[in-house]
């Protein structure tokens, strides 16, 4: 444990040193500009895509969670609650509802992948597992999303 943390610390120190050297005059505020230049120099591979998507869906979900909890205050007033739900039933929100399911599904499956990988798999299986995560996300989003949007976007198309 001590050896591992010592190694991690060493890697971190070298990384920070490079970050500060590279950022030059913006040393006091190195994060965003260096993030952009570093990010654009990377070739996006499965592992990085998984990390980035996990982070972006996580941020979106925590933002939505706060809005959702504030919306639930309308539970104290039946009329306000029906009006609140009607807003969420507009066609645009129905699409957002499916996107929400997609974000939750990806974040959940990718989280389980990280857990499984930590416990059972070695690194050569990582990419395969990530593709399985993407496939499961698509399947769950379609399976759950179609009933949600059916009355709005599919039923009107049927004869």
């Amino acid at each position: 444990m001590l050896a591992v943390s010592g190694f991690a610390h060493q890697v971190y120190r070298i990384g920070m040193q490079q970050n500060i050297e590279r950022s030059g005059p913006s040393r006091d505020n190195p994060s965003f500009r260096t993030f952009l230049s570093t990010a654009s120099s990377y070739k996006v591979r499965a592992g990085m895509a998984a990390w980035l998507l996990h982070r972006l869906t996580g941020l979106a979900l925590v933002f939505y969670l706060a809005i959702h909890i504030m919306g639930l205050r309308s539970l104290s007033d039946p009329a306000a609650f029906e009006i609140y739900i009607t807003v969420y039933r507009s066609p645009l929100f129905k699409v957002a509802e499916v996107m929400l399911l997609g974000a939750v599904a990806f974040h959940a499956f990718n989280g389980l992948r990280i857990l499984v990988q930590d416990m059972f798999f070695r690194s050569e299986r990582q990419r395969t597992l990530f593709y399985i995560v993407l496939a499961l996300t698509v399947i769950v989003t379609l399976a759950g999303g179609v009933p949600v949007i059916f009355p709005y976007f599919i039923a009107p198309l049927l004869p």
Partner: peptide, 15 residues
């Protein structure tokens, strides 16, 4: 129209 009827086949969360 702030509280709207359901579309055919729609299931609605209600108080």
């Amino acid at each position: 129209g702030k509280i709207r009827e359901a579309l055919p086949g729609e299931h609605v969360i209600t108080y």
